[in-house]
Amino acid sequence: MSALSAIRRSRNRPARPDTDTSGHRLLEVSGLTTRFDTPDGLVQAVNGVDLHVDRAEIVGVVGESGCGKSVTIRSILGLVRPPGRVVGGTAHFNGVDLLTLRGAELRRLRGKDIGFIAQNPFSALNPVMRIHRQFRNIMAAHDPASAGEVRDRARAALADVGIAGPGRVLDGYAHQLSGGMAQRVVIAMAMLLNPAFVIADEPTTGLDLTVQRQILDLIRGLVREHGRSMLLVTHDLGVVAQYCDRVVVMYAGKVIEHGSVRDVLTAPRHPYTQALIRAIPRPGRPLVHLTGRPPDLVDYPDGCPFRARCPHAFEPCGHTVPEPVTVASGQTYRCHLREDGEVGL
């Protein structure tokens, strides 16, 4: 199925209201700012990111490589290590600001309330420890009394992700698995303790196309089935179109546009979003690659970070950071241009 038909189909899905209905809100990130103090200078990786995830909602985060998607989720999970530091913002999860939690409190949430699906299973799984023992460690970290049920619970979790011979997988090592199988194991670990919220960071990178589809279908199934919510990081708008309810578009560590998938993909307002959509391969249409590169995050530009690559850049873009503009449906973008940028799908 092409990305375009996925986008078309998403038009038929009812749009969620983007207004704050507090009881539904699971995660609310605002003003998140993370830097890395490196020998080359201060890397301004995440610059005032606002985003939210409601209950039973799948939110996509898209943007080119290096635009701060992974650092954003690492910041939310408290996984940023020196020389990186979260210098500002809040991340309320179930009403608790994750950024103010200390070690043990945060550890209790990680894995139990928030499941994390890593990008590459072979670098995420421990290569020198049997899979069974890795499951056991996760359970022991959250419930020391559960030692007796590790094997049953792990078997059940592996069966849930469609692994036919869970016993053999448990007794083996990661490198004995195929990429798709290994990613299923990672998903089983993320879902093991039944988290209400799942964060997936490009969960299918490096897998072949049919397996990518299977894995994404699997993740979506596990999320929808149990009324979970998910933040799905990807650089592929086709994936967003097919699997997400809302989308957040990031550029140079900022959210430059967000809204329902239907609105953003059919009527993108920001020239960067428009350029990303034009770059989706589609039959019967020439591919328009995005030229240029994202700005240097050490020497962060004044004004709009996209200015240097923007076909519409004009006078204010060089010195004034665009304020967010919200259109009727809740779609929000940060651009000085006011009229619709015609992309036409």
Partner: peptide, 11 residues
Amino acid sequence: KQVEFARACGL
């Protein structure tokens, strides 16, 4: 990434 994943699992 392995250590990051271990931390993300709450170890």
